[in-house]
Design a protein around this nucleic acid. Structure first.
Lengths: 213, 213
DNA sequence: GTCTATATTGAGATAGAC
DNA sequence: GTCTATCTCAATATAGAC
């Protein structure tokens, strides 16, 4: 057989993935410092040398954990930026892309928040701000493009960017901390619609205009 | 002298405040679990029994730390809600009030974020979500009022609320994590203006309309 | 090598003098 | 109200049996 799918035959990269998943869950629930290599390998159902073979150290597995999805995120952003469509469409795609990546990696997001906001845990440095900045720059660029093309009103693109980022962050943090109240992708789209159209009733506009709730 | 101001004379409540400030700073920088009672009293320049006299325990000082400002925040919100003005004015006051409280208690905010997002640290439970919910409810109420009065367009008040909360959160988190990029109160006001007026250019509107950047 | 029993440390908390 | 001195306890480190 060219593609052995039996369960007794360990797939290539299978152990590696199990180790990453185990580490993510443990880092998320107990924190980086409190998680021992022993626990990671136990949960992954492998032995210590396996972890050291693939990742060299606890720090190593942590860095792999962080960097791979971060790189993925940045590359997705790049794809969206180079795609076509109106500024508004591109902006929505950018936000939804970020949200999707976040939701697809919720346990990892938990680790990131825990490291970013939590107490020092001796974890090696990862430049979260750089990724965040890149996301913000992308949004700003699309906004400026929209203004230049006359698709958006003039104004401070930086302020618009923060408002957009705020909406996306809210959706992410709801998913992370209060999933029962999560607004989801649709929620992001509705918030963007509000951002584009405004909350205030316009002069002469029929009362009750806008999307009915 | 009726009001002794000398330095050798300990003011009433002075020790208490110093203990609270010391605990806040240490919890913020090292985390709750890693901070010892000894460090707190050392930084406050007093001895252990003083802490136990005022706060009964390490958990006690933590709870005082959290609850007093939270109560203050909720009471400020209440005042704003009972105040007058248009819905838009009230909404702005609500957001700025929350932001001011946050900025006035930055070190405490750091502790809250650390506890909320960080790894388990054995700190006693504080219901941050309840305060957050109350803030959200207040905003929602003002938004619904604005819609009812025809000041705002119809629409989903909940979505509008999240957009507003997102803007306020962004301003807070910038202040917390990247103060150099902070947008400040003015930034919140500008974001609200964007939320009210919308980003999209309106049909027939002169290009470049809106506040010039 | 692994395991368990014991020492040591350092934490939170207290009693009683002043 | 504050301090000196002390207590209790749990986690950690270590040592010695197996």
């Amino acid at each position: 057989m060219a593609k052995p799918a039996g369960k007794d035959r360990t797939e290539a990269g299978e152990v590696r993935k199990r180790l990453l998943a185990a580490a993510t869950d443990l880092f998320a629930s107990k924190g980086y410092a409190a998680t021992t290599v022993r626990e990671i390998v136990a949960r992954a159902g492998v032995t210590k040398p396996a972890l050291y073979y693939y990742f060299h150290s606890k720090e190593g597995i942590y860095l792999h954990l962080m960097r791979e999805p971060l790189r993925g995120f940045l590359s997705h952003i790049g794809s969206v930026l180079s795609g076509g469509g109106t500024a508004r469409e591109r902006l929505a795609r950018l936000c939804l892309c970020a949200y999707d990546d976040f939701v697809m990696n919720l346990p990892l997001a938990r680790v990131m928040y825990s490291i970013y906001y939590g107490p020092p845990q001796g974890a090696p440095f990862v430049d979260f701000d750089a990724a965040q900045r890149q996301f913000q720059d992308s949004i700003t660029r699309v906004l400026e493009e929209g203004i230049r093309r006359g698709e958006f009103r003039g104004g401070n693109a930086s302020d618009m960017m923060w408002a957009v980022v705020g909406a996306v962050n809210v959706a992410m943090e709801l998913e992370l901390c209060r999933p029962s109240q999560s607004v989801g992708r649709k929620g992001i789209e509705r918030m963007l619609e509000i951002l584009f159209g405004g909350i205030a009733r316009r002069k002469g506009e029929a009362k009750g205009k806008g999307k009915r709730a």
